[in-house]
């Protein structure tokens, strides 16, 4: 992958032309200095308008109808409430919760980290995938209490203040999503997968398990198998595979669509064999 192409530089003139709204938004995203420049570069490279960012601000406007701080005034948990201390996206969180709380609900309902999605709540879809201590897990089946002292990374923490994570950028480039609901889980899963491949971990389709190789370059078949724990009902799988392949090995995908040209159409319309078909006898 050519980094220069992926992250074209943005000159200061472009930055100065940002509106106050856009400035504010980038501030909220925690993007400053070089990170901001890189982010904007990616934004332009992927054909996105800065206005697109304003979708992100929509919630702010809606939330303004009500007072947001009350959200955190939690209701009394049951008598057996427990306290859990953990790191989420690099910052320490101390939560007092009902022991029945799973990590997924704590993220979404307590911490407002709604990037982690609830798709089935029973370990059957992968939408809630987050990275705990470096490994991808399902937050719907993780009791928050068992996360004491752990390091949790969610989609909100992937970019780590430095613009988009390359996987996020690749997902946009390859249109690896439609509705976007499974996307954070897919991306977390894909990012953790990179480390699994680095460590030489195997999958069901790996041939000859007895030979262990580090730094695997994953075939499409391997990527597909390893990503099969993340359902995408829109069916964006080929884009997901292309995005991971690009980030994992730099291999590019041939474009799988084209507009039929006039010449192409004329050629087939004049193709006698095609037009007149063939019966059994001609085979």
């Amino acid at each position: 992958m050519n980094d220069k192409n992926e992250h074209p530089s943005v000159n200061d003139g472009d930055l100065e032309s940002l509106s106050a709204d856009e400035e504010k938004l980038l501030d909220e995203l925690g993007l400053f200095g070089a990170a901001r420049r890189q982010f904007l570069g990616q934004t332009l490279a992927s054909g996105l308008g800065i206005f697109a960012l304003q979708l992100l601000a929509k919630e702010k406007a809606l939330a303004a109808m009500t007072s947001p701080d009350a959200v955190l005034a939690q209701n009394a948990a049951s008598g057996d409430a427990i306290q859990v201390t953990m790191r989420i996206n690099g910052s320490t969180q101390i939560l007092t919760v009902d022991p029945r709380t799973v990590l997924l609900d704590a993220l979404r309902e307590r911490l407002g980290l709604t990037g982690t999605k609830k798709g089935c709540d029973q370990g059957q879809c992968g939408a809630c995938t987050v990275i705990v201590d470096g490994r991808r897990v399902l937050s719907c089946l993780t009791l928050l209490a068992s996360c004491e002292g752990k390091e949790v990374t969610t989609i909100e923490g992937l970019a780590n203040g430095a613009g988009l994570h390359p996987m996020q950028a690749a997902f946009i480039k390859h249109d690896a999503f439609q509705c976007g609901y499974c996307t954070p889980g897919q991306i977390c899963s894909a990012v953790a997968l990179l480390r699994e491949a680095e460590a030489g971990e195997a999958s069901y389709v790996t041939r000859n398990l007895r030979t262990i190789t580090k730094d695997l370059e994953l075939s499409d078949e391997e990527i597909r198998e390893r990503m099969s724990g993340n359902l995408c009902r829109c069916g964006a799988y080929p884009g997901i595979v292309a995005a991971i392949r690009e980030v994992q090995s730099g291999r590019q995908t041939a474009q799988a669509w084209h507009f039929a040209t006039q010449e192409e159409i004329a050629a087939v319309m004049n193709d006698k064999l095609l037009r007149e078909g063939r019966s059994d006898e001609t085979v």
Binding site: L29, T43, S46, G47, L48, G49, F51, A52, L53, L55, L56, K58, E59, L113, T114, G115, T116, K117, T154, I155, E156, A159, L164, Q168, A169, F171, I172, K173, D175, F177, G180, Y181, T183, P184, I187
Partner: peptide, 16 residues
Amino acid sequence: MSRVEGIAKVTGRAKY
């Protein structure tokens, strides 16, 4: 053209 809401979706900021 890439999706204009792409960043919102890949960063988890798109609100459902």
